[in-house]
Simulated scan of single mutants.
Amino acid sequence: MSQLVLKSLGSAVVAVALTAAPSARAGASDTSDGACGSTSAGWNAPNGALVLTRGSGGPITSVLSGVGEYRTHSLLSHGPGGDVTHETMYTPGTNGWPTYCSTPMKVNELASGYPGAARVNQGAIYQYLYGGGGLEYIAYQRSRSSAGYDTKGETITNWILNSMPTEATQSKKDGGQSILRIKGDNGYPLNYTLYQYRDLEGVNTGTAGWNNGMVCSTMIAYAQFRAGFGAVSAYTYDHATLVSAGNALYNAVETECNTGLGFWTDIGSKATCFEGICDDAARQVRNCMAAGNCGTDDGNVWSNIANNPNTVSRSISPDRLGGWSGHPYSGTGASVWSYDTSNTVQWNSGGNVYGCWF
């Protein structure tokens, strides 16, 4: 089957072969997320492989579905059973009364997502992927071109190990565990910044974005450029697509808040306000992603964007890294992994590993 035909099957789900169930541990925390877990077997993704996943819910899934794309998270493997580099954030905590009636989410946790860029072990990544609910899709892609597989992906992960310093940080849920937070050029750990979905700025050409921030896919594009393999070109989503994504984000946050599910749980049950706190949370999160204004639920922030036909979004998504959903899989501006097709992730490398992703 030709590469073009294979790439047209962007929404096909690759089977996930699991050999072990997670054993999660979670202590008291202001966030509802479980940070720590274990797996009795590691994954088979080779060193330098790009791993792409899709979760079963949450705001990022809604945003990317709203722009017609499928994959929602991207990670880099350091080898079968080895460490994993990715960029993510835990669910922000909630403010106390009366602040939560206007800005329900803690502003600093929403604006500067934690842990941001980090390197974690197999137990931690298993908990991250499977501990919070269903995972619809997971597959890996190796770096390759029309001439066959190459070592570019491995060179990129080795560049990360050798050229991006880390800071060992104690887990917020298990004091006996630590994670390695990855630092930017300014010497500070990189944050997960939702605004990167609106504008990645110059991250794909080797500079950090606003608030020393990146997201999963823009961080990998950054590493490809800095390792010497050229820039993954940013994609411009037109105004109508931007508005669709913003509305999808708002609806996802409000619905999951109202039902006590998903990304931000328990908000509605904690509040006694004169207006719907879930509506406030949805507007606050949308303002954060669309404008980098994470400290307000003011509806005018979004209205000014939605009513201006010149506003667009410019970013790099997981599907763009993988060459799916119409994004290029070869040539200038493509990632080194995009020519490959989906390879099944199996959890079959030996060794029981426990760890925490934050």
Rank of each mutant, 00 (worst) to 15 (best):
P92Y: 09
G96C: 11
G96D: 15
W97G: 05
W97M: 11
P98A: 10
T103M: 09
T103I: 15
V107A: 14
V107W: 03
N108Y: 07
N108T: 10
N108H: 09
N108K: 07
L110T: 11
G113A: 11
G113Y: 02
G116V: 06
A117W: 03
R119N: 05
N121Y: 01
N121K: 03
A124M: 12
Q127K: 01
Y130Q: 01
L135C: 01
I138A: 07
Y140P: 02
S146G: 01
Y149I: 01
Y149D: 08
K152E: 09
E154I: 08
T157V: 09
N158S: 11
S163I: 06
P165V: 13
E167V: 14
E167I: 12
T169C: 02
T169S: 05
S171Q: 01
D174V: 15
D174C: 12
S178M: 14
S178E: 15
L180W: 10
K183E: 09
G184T: 08
D185G: 14
D185R: 08
N186Q: 04
G187N: 13
Y188G: 10
P189M: 02
N191R: 11
Y192D: 04
T193V: 15
Y195H: 14
Y195V: 11
Y197T: 01
R198M: 10
G202V: 04
G202W: 08
N204M: 10
G206W: 00
G206V: 04
A208K: 06
A208T: 11
G209D: 01
G209I: 02
M214N: 07
V215L: 04
T218A: 05
M219P: 01
M219Q: 09
I220D: 01
A221Q: 03
A223D: 04
A223Y: 12
A227V: 10
